[in-house]
Amino acid sequence: MSGAGSGFNRRSVVGWLAVVGMPSGAQELTPSRAGAPVDLPSLIKRSRSSVLLVGTFGETDSPRFSFRGTGFVAAEGNLVITNKHVLPEGGEMTGGRRLVVRAATGPTGRWVMREVEVLKLDRERDLALLRVQGEALSPLALASDQVAQEGKSVAILGFPVGGALGFSLVTHRGIISSITPIALPQASAQALNEKSIRKLREATFNILQLDATAYPGNSGGPVIDLETGAVVGVLNMVLIKGSRETALTHPTGISYAIPVDLVTKLLARAD
């Protein structure tokens, strides 16, 4: 997001902010008792293997793994949520490259790579549902759509700046500063016509504005309510000043997340 006013520039924010599972048998992370605050260190420890690296893998490439963004396990242990813009375009999947996730499993956090397939897309809300192969991972609990409220404390989990700082799970804290309607625009002005404008109006939905710092690599990561321990949103965009590079050097501390009720609807379409 850049420029004057409040318009979203997805080419300078979301397209660049590829801002981009617990082991089998582990217990699902469930919300805490009503009114009981979540112990943040325990929350991070329990979530570590449920928050995944999303990228592509090519056996003969260097590097073989190319990081694109964050995802997290939801619902059944073989379903993963991330942003649509985290996924590679068709032309990028050449030479036998495969879409994969990497999960930190076991007591030592050993990285395990799994192939995934795209199960469902919600292009208007920039969400993607993936199916991961192999043994089930432990999902994060999803909040009800009434949980997200302005002023609530949240934690963002993900892999900011990707491999530049090493693939270690990073947590940022913040609050939900606003819940406001948005319609994500077309990729270019040339795509705007009567039909697309009508579609934009129909696609209006609420987005969570966060008073929290996020970076490239965080896209697709969970936003967790610190009162319940449940996911209330999916990190999607950051507000930037000036060029895209200033998201690293001069972060605004303003981020945006897709609310969890849209995730729940996408999961329902997988049945």
Rank of each mutant, 00 (worst) to 15 (best):
S178V: 06
I179H: 01
T180P: 00
P181Y: 00
P181D: 06
I182D: 00
I182K: 01
A183K: 03
A183H: 04
A183R: 02
A183M: 02
L184W: 00
P185L: 03
P185A: 02
Q186T: 02
Q186A: 00
A187Y: 01
A187V: 03
A187D: 02
A187K: 04
S188W: 06
S188F: 01
A189K: 04
Q190I: 01
Q190D: 04
L192G: 00
N193M: 00
N193V: 00
N193Q: 02
N193G: 03
N193H: 02
E194S: 03
K195H: 10
K195V: 05
S196W: 00
S196L: 00
S196T: 01
S196P: 03
S196H: 01
I197W: 05
R198F: 07
R198D: 01
K199A: 05
L200F: 00
L200Q: 02
E202I: 02
E202K: 07
A203T: 09
A203Q: 07
T204C: 08
T204E: 10
F205T: 12
F205Y: 12
N206I: 14
N206K: 15
I207R: 12
L208P: 13
L208S: 14
L208A: 12
L210K: 14
D211I: 11
D211T: 13
D211G: 14
A212N: 09
A212T: 08
T213N: 11
T213P: 14
P216C: 07
P216D: 13
P216V: 09
P216L: 13
P216W: 10
G217S: 07
G217Y: 10
G217T: 09
N218I: 12
N218C: 14
S219Q: 04
G220P: 11
G220V: 13
G220F: 07
P222I: 12
P222E: 08
P222T: 06
V223P: 06
V223S: 12
D225V: 10
D225S: 09
L226H: 11
L226P: 11
L226G: 12
L226Q: 07
E227Q: 08
E227V: 08
T228Q: 11
G229E: 05
A230I: 08
V231T: 09
V231F: 10
V231P: 02
V231S: 05
V231M: 04
V231K: 06
V232T: 08
V232P: 13
V232I: 08
G233H: 04
G233F: 05
G233L: 09
V234A: 05
V234N: 01
V234E: 01
L235D: 07
L235F: 08
N236S: 14
M237P: 04
M237N: 04
M237S: 05
V238N: 06
V238S: 07
L239E: 06
I240T: 09
I240L: 14
I240V: 11
K241W: 07
G242F: 02
S243F: 09
S243L: 04
R244I: 11
E245N: 05
E245S: 12
E245Y: 05
T246L: 11
A247T: 13
A247M: 10
L248R: 15
L248S: 14
L248Q: 15
L248W: 13
H250Q: 14
H250K: 15
P251H: 13
P251S: 09
P251E: 14
T252D: 14
T252L: 09
T252Y: 13
T252N: 15
T252M: 15
T252W: 12
T252K: 13
